[in-house]
Amino acid sequence: MTGRRDRVITVLQAGRAVAALSIVAYHAAIATRDYAQALPEAAFFAFERGAFGVDFFFVLSGFIILHAHRDDPAGAAAARAYAVKRLMRIYVPYWPVALAMIGLYLVLPQVSGSQRSWSLVTSLTLLPTGAPPALAAAWTLVHEMMFYALFLLSYFVRGFAWIVAAWVGLILAGIWLGLETSYAAPTWLSLFAPINAEFVAGMLAALAVRRASPAWAGPALVIGLAALVAFFALGTDPAGPARMGFGFAVAVLVAGAVWLERAGSLAAPGWMILLGDASYAIYLVHNPVASLGARIAGRFEALRPWPVSLALCILLGVGFGLAYHLAFERPALAFLRRRQARGRSLAQAPR
């Protein structure tokens, strides 16, 4: 791809930052409630909405994958490059955190407040086995990997749009049939979980941005915001299939924001871009760190009040995630990309 599409879309990075911070706040509220002091019901309800940050991530992922790879050539070579890029992006930051959690649970199983079971296979591979990974938040990565695998078909099948349409059809059929698809402990049936439709919503938003004029920015923002307000006003069950409505409302908002940036009317500030860059690292490390922070707060009277504990958990989750990004994730990925580029140069050099 060339031109404007090669540039970073700053509002997408800002969206990733918002999604990560929402999830951090949600898990910080749970940790504070469990280990320090219970939050007032209204406050906990508000922070609980942060769970929808996962849906936001799925929409952004669908948008970014289509935006970045829609113009890739067909065939095995491009498919291999896509697969290596996505696997490296997921596993390189993930494995150190996953191995740390596996080691912690093996040595100190009582650390898990719920004494929950977990799968070593899922923890290491992110394959759906019906049991959750050691890192609780990694259940979303299992869905992410399913989506990446499905998108891989676009390199070999001309009618990929029909495959996506069939996927949505099967998701809707599963809802109608009452198919049980666990989010936290994914199985292969989780490919048809309603939340996966949000990847499709993101891809549709990316297609709309590619094909329509930025003049649609205003209507998209109005429609998306109205749909979002309606979603929350209706008190939709966060665990039910109607959760897809949030994803599609956010997808319309994302399209509107990208159109505004394309028109030169909007850009994210640098600190949000940095947090967006670090959003995956924050997502990986925040929950164990927030849990530890809340346990510490629960032992000291000055830190026990829920606003103090909550703030401590959020700061620790974001701070450790940002440090992990700067100290490991970013340099490790940069090193591997340089190795890849050097390998390609050597392979193309005349002999």
Rank of each mutant, 00 (worst) to 15 (best):
M101C: 04
G103W: 12
L104C: 06
Y105H: 14
L106W: 14
L106I: 05
L108Q: 15
P109H: 07
S114Y: 13
S114N: 12
W118T: 00
V121Y: 08
V121K: 06
T122K: 07
T122N: 11
S123E: 07
L124G: 00
A131G: 10
P133G: 10
A134F: 08
A137D: 11
A138K: 08
T140Q: 04
L141M: 07
V142E: 04
V142H: 08
H143A: 03
M145I: 10
M146N: 09
F147N: 07
Y148E: 05
Y148P: 00
A149N: 04
F151I: 11
L152I: 02
S154C: 10
V157F: 14
R158V: 11
I163L: 15
I163Q: 07
I163Y: 13
A165T: 09
A165S: 09
V168K: 03
V168H: 08
L170T: 07
A173I: 11
I175M: 07
I175W: 09
W176R: 15
E180R: 15
E180Q: 15
T181N: 06
A184Q: 11
A184I: 14
A184E: 11
P186F: 09
P186M: 04
T187H: 04
W188N: 03
S190E: 01
L191V: 12
L191M: 10
F192P: 01
P194C: 09
A197K: 01
E198A: 03
V200S: 05
A201R: 01
M203T: 08
L207W: 15
A208V: 11
V209P: 04
V209Q: 04
R210C: 07
R211H: 15
P214C: 00
A217P: 02
G218T: 15
P219D: 10
L221S: 01
V222A: 14
